[in-house]
Amino acid sequence: MTTPTDTDDGLTNEEFHASLQAFVGQQIGPAMVAPDEVNVPMIRHWCEAMGDTNPIYLDEAAAQASTHGGLVAPPAMLQAWVMTGLTGPSRSGDGPYEQLTDLLATRGFTSVVATNCEQTYDRYLRPGDRLSMVTTITDVSAQKDTGLGTGHFITTQQDYLDDSGERVGSMVFRIIRFRPRGTSARRPAPATTRDSNWWFEALAAGEVRVQRCSDCGLLRHPPGPMCPRCHSLAYDSVSIDGNGTIHSFVVVHHPQVPGFDYPLPVVLVDVDVTGESVRPVRMVMNTADTDPEAVVIGAAVRIEVRTAGGQHLPFAIVTDAPGGAS
């Protein structure tokens, strides 16, 4: 899992949208040239897949007798002729489209769904035509709330040219780049101090640790400056072994804060510590991959560091609930 570098950009939605407008009108990379001329074998594969028996695509005599006067390609194949295929080069990593995509990702708009595809055909293509395609970013919408989530619509136009430079067709293609509903909105950041930074830094490195007094050895959590038993200010830490038991829990229904999914179980976990026979500390965390119904007192959990809303945090995954509730 990669971590979004989810920094606050300090911009209003309107200001962010204005920064996206810089990309409108830009051509995406050089023209893409079709690897092959329009050809009958590819037309045959297409017609077989689509069950298309229109004779103008594969039956020379019928095509001659039609208004088309010879074999033509199915018009909807327009886009297929310039597809890069399985081993074709991917687009260069630093073009305007990639920059736009990266900028949208800074706000968590990383999911993508195509919404509209409009193709117009200036003429039918014939075997022997060699196409190239030029793509331009034509619109980036303001932020929209949709059924999928919140995001921006991006519209591009593809112009398809034959080898004499004449346009043979064009396509307007619209996608939405969005943040899925309820999954990855930013969480409120924890208030860290000089006494607790080390704990969050360990999480960022993928480890859940427990503070230990360097003098008397008492384990304690949450992190604090002083040992409550011997009052020493010296401490180090030990790692947990990843298992625990739900000591208690609440399920939050209201109020709902962006960045969390509701109903939201908040569990207090008795945490196993490596080398310790008793469970000396408890930790508060949310659950992951767990049906809220499976959250019961006494349930065994595995504790993992996950990324949520741009932060690394410990999560409890119920592995075995008493009475088989999991």
Binding site: G51, N54, P74, A76, C117, Q119
Partner: peptide
């Protein structure tokens, strides 16, 4: 897109010419 084109030319026949296909997904 291919099925939309085929659906229309199944009806319209070999002498028809598709000028545009505009779809929403």
């Amino acid at each position: 897109n291919g099925f939309v084109g085929r659906f229309v030319t199944d009806w319209a026949g070999p002498d028809a010419t598709i000028r545009a296909i505009r779809i929403r997904l």
